[in-house]
Every structure is written in structure tokens, then in C-alpha cells.
Design a protein around this nucleic acid. Structure first.
Length: 473
RNA sequence: CGGGGCGUAGCAUAGCGGCUUAAUGCGCCGCGUUUGGGACGCGGAGAUCGCUGGUUCAAAUCCAGUCGCCCCGACCA
């Protein structure tokens, strides 16, 4: 039995990850094994995003896992930010190394060392590359998919001739994430800008898309950094422009990680397990055959193969669960745990009447439908479900976003409801730090277009924008 | 890095100085009956009790060390 979401959310989360077969703990501290079903979800995310990234004119590359210490040290803020969580290689081939090698916590430095050689002329720009890779960050506290010592991600890195080019890229990367998360993961996010304290080490500014999990905690789902010329200056990325002048380049970097799998679980799941949006589910339709004897099974096989043909023609990803050891009831529960969007229960009754019985994961009601009609409607049934999940997510975020007029409001809302809290903030890091200290809530971001005039909830100084507070993962 | 907990079969646990062969559930293997909401019977395989040392006539059990993991806090995609 699965723990109840409302009673113990984190226990529920861990059980879903383990029992649904997404991942398990490995024998290596802080690291997880991603199992086939979990990896299939990541793979779907990866494939879709990879196409979107290419549509932005970005090419895939691969850079070394090892980063010499001297590279990391070139950008002062960058080292400082990452130093506490870097893993170092000090020996190789049985010998002590002359220089330590970091296992990449992110690839800015190792890439930009090379970029400085690639870029000589304005004709070499813009340079846009992306890398799918594993990342090592020595986190003190780990949690399946959300925070592990090693994780998988995508990191885009671009170089531009002018500030505007970098700005536009920073925005389009974020827009791409928002689009992907909305239209494929069916999760509503709030795009905005990070406060200085939460800005990526070495960036001019950081944009993010933030969402709310079902327990009311915030989760950053993607980030896009405008690096300005900070790294260009440290790594000497210069080019001759049209006027034959030497200029430092402008850069961006942006990424999303396997953390999104965790977000997917926590944004849609229920007490029965995962709820996967059809567009990201490994199997959109799972067929559970029900039979008593060989004769019934023979008839079923024939009937189901016609269903298979029909689903294939519509481009629907499906799986027929012919396992002999499990009873139908067991399979129903198993696929609910695994979040299959649509389940077909096919037995002698369905064969007899040329119909299907289907159950959608979000409402769990059994519905009969003529086979022909079902095959005709399957695509739209799934896309309706996709829409419902997004709508539910939007409503959830809306219902759990509250406005705080005063500091006591803020404290009260955070402790009673959690969720997002909109409040004015003066921009002072001191107020931000004190609020974090006292309420555990952090500024998730400053949503785009948030304006108005008011007073900082903490110090009462004038403020020109509301920001989003939440307790976060 | 601070606080807490735990290492016994693939997994989850019981046993906490002597019950004589280390137990139970799940899982696994075989046979049979089952199969429309987590089936059942019978038979079976599987454990140097994390590791090292010590105390004792006797150690999974007590002591010391060591390694590892999990949970709670500060740092983070």
C-alpha cells in the first residue's frame, strides 16, 4: 500500500519512485539507479526537448567530464559558488596528478576555454551548442530525482556578438522551457527573474520557470542565465568586429535536468501513484487482457491484435500486458501506480460485443465504448486528458497563490498554507535573507511583468515589484 | 558538517548471551487449482547475521574499532 499524499508527502513520493519502478537507491552513497520505466520518461523528455533545442539553431556537442582546477578558478564568482560541491580527481594511472581535475559540476569553464579558440571573428558568431551529459555535485542531502550526487541534464551554451543577442537567447531558452513544461508535462510554471542571491554564480542575471508541487512547495524547473561578458573576460573570448575592433563576446547558458521527472511525479500524482500526461508517458495505452482458458485467450489474441493495429495506425504508444503470473486486478493497480494514462480492460465480454472498457488515469471510471468508436476517438480522448491535466495544474497554482500585504501575512500564509505568496520586496538582500531565516521561504523569482507600487513586506521601503515567495525543494 | 537511526536471504523485518537445524512476510523456482480490482494449496532453493578485533565454556546477541547507508537541519539543478 502506498502512503497517503496528504499524510506524508515525502514518504508517498519515495514510494512512488521505488514502487512504480522509476528508480532505486544504488549501493553508492547519494546516487540512484534510473530503471527502464523511469529512464523511458526521461528519454521522452530528452527527445522532445532535443528537437526544440535544435529548432533554436543549437547544435549538440560533447565536452570532457574532467575540468582542470585552473579552469574552474578563472571566474572568481563561479568557483566560489561551486567550490563546496565539487568532486575532485587527484590520481590517475596510479600517480598523483600535477593538477587536480574536477568532475564537472557544470561545463561553462571547460567549454569556454575551447570557445576562446573557436571564436576569432564576428563571422564565428553566434555560436550555439548544447550538451546532454551527467553532472556531479557533492550534495549533502539527497533525494531521488530531485537531488543526487550525479544527475543527467542538458546544458545549452551560446556566444553572441552583442548584448542584445545574449539577452534574446536567454529569453528564448526560458520560453522554450515554459512551452515544453506546459505543453508536454502539463505543468503550469511562473517565468521570472531570480533575485541576486539566487543568481547563477558568474551570471549577470538568471531567469527561471518555477512551479508548485502538490504539497505546496516550490520547485525550479528550468533556468536560463545571461552571463554577460563575465566569462568572456576570464576566458579571453574575443573577436574582431566589422569595424576591426577587438570585442569581448556575450554569453548565455541554460539547462534542465532529471529533476523534471521528480516534478512530474509531484505535480500530477495521487494516492494511487503516478499520473502521467499522455505526451510524456512511456505507454499512452496499456491493455490488460482478461481470460480464463486457452480458448478465451486465443480469441483475445485475435481481438487485441486488431486493437494493436488500430492504435499503431494512430501513432499511439501502447503496451499489452500479457503477463501470466499476475491477475487482472493486480495489473490494474500496477498500471495505476505507474501512471499509464489510459487502460483498456479486454476480456470475453468485450470480444463478444466488439467493444472496449477503458479507464482514464485521472478519473478512474470504467467506460464502455464500441471498438471502432474507441479507435476513432483514442487520440482525442488522450489529448483531452492532456488538456485536463494542464488545466488542473493551472488552477492548482492559482488556488495556492496568495497575496501578503504585511510581514505577518507572509509568515501566516507560509506556515498555514505553504504555496506561493506574492509580496512586495525592496530588492535588499538583507530582507531576503531575514525572511528566509524566519519563514524558510525564499524568493522563487520576480515574475515577468510584475509591477505596481508598494512597500517591502519586511522593511517597509518602497518597492516597484511583487515577487514570489515559497518554501522550495 | 552538526543531531538521530540502522546494517540478519533479492527486499522488509523478528530474534538482543544457551531454545539445539537463525525465524516470518513479500519476492524467486516446481506442480496443481485460479484469473473482470493487489488469488490459493503443496513442495523447494536461497544467510560466511556489514567488516575487524576482543570478552566468554558459549556471540547475530555484550564491548571496542571500522566501513556503509537512511532520516532530520545548514548548502544546492
Amino acid at each position: 500500500m502506498l502512503a497517503s499524499q496528504s499524510k506524508d508527502f515525502s514518504k508517498w513520493y519515495n514510494q512512488v519512485v521505488l514502487d512504480a519502478g522509476l528508480a532505486e537507491y544504488s549501493s553508492i552513497k547519494g546516487c540512484m539507479v534510473i530503471k527502464p520505466y523511469g529512464y523511458a520518461i526521461w528519454e521522452n523528455m530528452k527527445n522532445i526537448l532535443d528537437g526544440m533545442i535544435k529548432d533554436l539553431g543549437v547544435d549538440n556537442v560533447y565536452f570532457p567530464l574532467f575540468i582542470p582546477e585552473s579552469f574552474l578558478k578563472k571566474e572568481a564568482e563561479h568557483v566560489e559558488g561551486f567550490d563546496p560541491e565539487v568532486a575532485w580527481v587527484t590520481q590517475g594511472g596510479g600517480k598523483e596528478l600535477g593538477e587536480r581535475l574536477a568532475l564537472r559540476p557544470t561545463s561553462e569553464t571547460v567549454m569556454y576555454d575551447t570557445f576562446s579558440k573557436w571564436i576569432q571573428s564576428h563571422r564565428d558568431l553566434p555560436l550555439k551548442v548544447n550538451q546532454w551529459a551527467n553532472i556531479i555535485r557533492w550534495e549533502k542531502r539527497t533525494r531521488l530525482f530531485l537531488r543526487t550526487l550525479e544527475f543527467l541534464w542538458q546544458e545549452g551554451h551560446t556566444v553572441h556578438a552583442d548584448e542584445r543577442g545574449a539577452e534574446e537567447m536567454t529569453n528564448s531558452a526560458l520560453a522554450m522551457y515554459e512551452d515544453f513544461i506546459k505543453n508536454h508535462l502539463a505543468i503550469h510554471t511562473i517565468p521570472g527573474r531570480k533575485s541576486d542571491a539566487e543568481t547563477f554564480a558568474g551570471a549577470d542575471y538568471t531567469l527561471s520557470v518555477e512551479s508548485l508541487m502538490l504539497d505546496g512547495k516550490g520547485l525550479q524547473m528550468g533556468t536560463s542565465h545571461n552571463l554577460g561578458q563575465n566569462f568572456a573576460k576570464s576566458f579571453d573570448i574575443k573577436f574582431l568586429d566589422e569595424k576591426e575592433e577587438q570585442k569581448y563576446a556575450w554569453q548565455t547558458s541554460w539547462g534542465v535536468s532529471t529533476r523534471m521527472v521528480g516534478a512530474l511525479i509531484m505535480a500530477h500524482g495521487d494516492d494511487k501513484g503516478l499520473v502521467l500526461p499522455p505526451r510524456i508517458a512511456p505507454y499512452q495505452v496499456v491493455v490488460v487482457p482478461i481470460w480464463k482458458d486457452n480458448k478465451e485467450k486465443k480469441n483475445l489474441e485475435k481481438y487485441i491484435s486488431s486493437i494493436e493495429r488500430g492504435l499503431s495506425e494512430k501513432g499511439i504508444k501502447f503496451f499489452v500486458d500479457w503477463r501470466e503470473q499476475q491477475t487482472p486486478g493486480w495489473k490494474f493497480n500496477d498500471w495505476e501506480l505507474k501512471g499509464a494514462p489510459l487502460r483498456l480492460e479486454i476480456g470475453p465480454n468485450e470480444v463478444e460485443e466488439k467493444k472496449v472498457t477503458f479507464v482514464l488515469r485521472d478519473d478512474l471510471k470504467k467506460k464502455p465504448l464500441a471498438l471502432d468508436k474507441f479507435l476513432e476517438d483514442a487520440v482525442s480522448i488522450l489529448s483531452e486528458m492532456q488538456k485536463r491535466l494542464l488545466k488542473r495544474s493551472e488552477e492548482f497554482v492559482k488556488d495556492n497563490t496568495r497575496v501578503a500585504e504585511s510581514y505577518s501575512d507572509l509568515k501566516k500564509i507560509i506556515s498555514e498554507y505553504s504555496g506561493f505568496v506574492e509580496a512586495f520586496w525592496c530588492g535588499d538582500e538583507k530582507c531576503e535573507a531575514e525572511i528566509k531565516e524566519e519563514t524558510k521561504a525564499t524568493i522563487r523569482n520576480i515574475p515577468f511583468g510584475s509591477g505596481g507600487k508598494g512597500k517591502c513586506v519586511k522593511c517597509g521601503k518602497k518597492s516597484g515589484h511583487k515577487v514570489l515567495f515559497a518554501k522550495a525543494y
